[in-house]
Design a protein around this nucleic acid. Sequence first.
DNA 1: ACGTCTATTGGACATCTGCGCAATAAGGGA
DNA 2: TCCCTTATTGCGCAGATGTCCAATAGACGT
Lengths: 212, 212
Amino acid sequence: MTRLSPTARREEIVAAALRVATTKGLANTTVRDVAAEMGTSSGLIHHYFASMDDVLAAAFEEAAGTDLAKTKVAMLACCDASERLSTFFASYTRTEEYRAFQMWLDAWAEASRRPALGATSRRLNVAWQELIAATLIEGVNDGVFVCDDPAATAWRVLSLLDGLSLQVAAHPGVIERAVVLDWAMTALEGEVGRPMRSLPRPSTDEGRAVAS
Amino acid sequence: MTRLSPTARREEIVAAALRVATTKGLANTTVRDVAAEMGTSSGLIHHYFASMDDVLAAAFEEAAGTDLAKTKVAMLACCDASERLSTFFASYTRTEEYRAFQMWLDAWAEASRRPALGATSRRLNVAWQELIAATLIEGVNDGVFVCDDPAATAWRVLSLLDGLSLQVAAHPGVIERAVVLDWAMTALEGEVGRPMRSLPRPSTDEGRAVAS
DNA sequence: ACGTCTATTGGACATCTGCGCAATAAGGGA
DNA sequence: TCCCTTATTGCGCAGATGTCCAATAGACGT
């Protein structure tokens, strides 16, 4: 293979690992899979990463971190906290997200067995919660939300979304994908003292726009 | 090893697999682990189970099914729907549950890779949801709850509990174990039209009583 | 043109995995 | 007591896995 600069090669390894993990799941991604995906030798991966744990952690960081950044950008385009949260829900319940959600399932399950992946999973999960909490506080300051404990509400909202998405990803057909967004927003309305169905329900297409 | 009857040996295999899975996690439990735990040969396991997938599914069924049965018994001892739900929450957030929760994480992650385990996980998850839904309907009929869609509320309550418990199990310290019960009950109060903190908060000891 | 640095190779190594199978032995019925 | 069923053994097989390492080759400065 053509000799690349360390930074370029590192990025390529992470990208390849992510591509494999998206298909086979994080837990099933092996050194040889990643090497084959790049068309290089397997020894090369260990020249850049001390262990497979580190590779998976970097790949997961790339996936979940990029999603988080995209969601933040989409939320910034909104004019108030209500719309921002609607946009958040929309991007979280996108069709492609459910395909990528297997990665979160693997990360949570492997967290106790792979230290680096566990640390990354923890950090990103907290980052998602903080994004919700910040938006809730903003809404309270603007007078559109009523919320005693934004941090707690943020954890509840995120955990509800995770719990529902988990069913969609792990047990297809048990919960219809389409209702997750509606159910989660209904719960949020109860949390922030808004009447039922008062928050704008984004269409699926709005969600797709975030993905590109 | 002493020759056992097929049913007795089958049960022993499941029990041994469960013991190993509790320690190492479902995803990390191997044929040889189970054989070593019983003090027998590995070939014996395949004499009773066609594949490791079936062993893990049976072990998981034993674990989650027993928990479900115990919880049902504890709920039956209560005199109304409010107390029943409080008892449900208490048994779900017991200290030992968090140790056993790794098994659910593994089951969800492995569901797409191991058909038998996936089917079992799905069936038990639905059973837990139905237990909540039935109690909600009972509460509505008794006039203590207001709930438009008990099935949807049940999925929300269960998913919230799963999402929060997941954080406790996968990312220790991110959420304090003690607040999960309180947060989940607060959310439930919003769902069923009860004023905040009106549902009885069970003590941790009540939860422990369910375990024995 | 030469030498040095290091990206890259390709395979060795030890270990683990699920599964299958021929041989063994235990136990119950006749 | 003998025999037949079958529970149990113990190892083999084929493949996978993470990690390591000596050898190779490509790029860059002098």
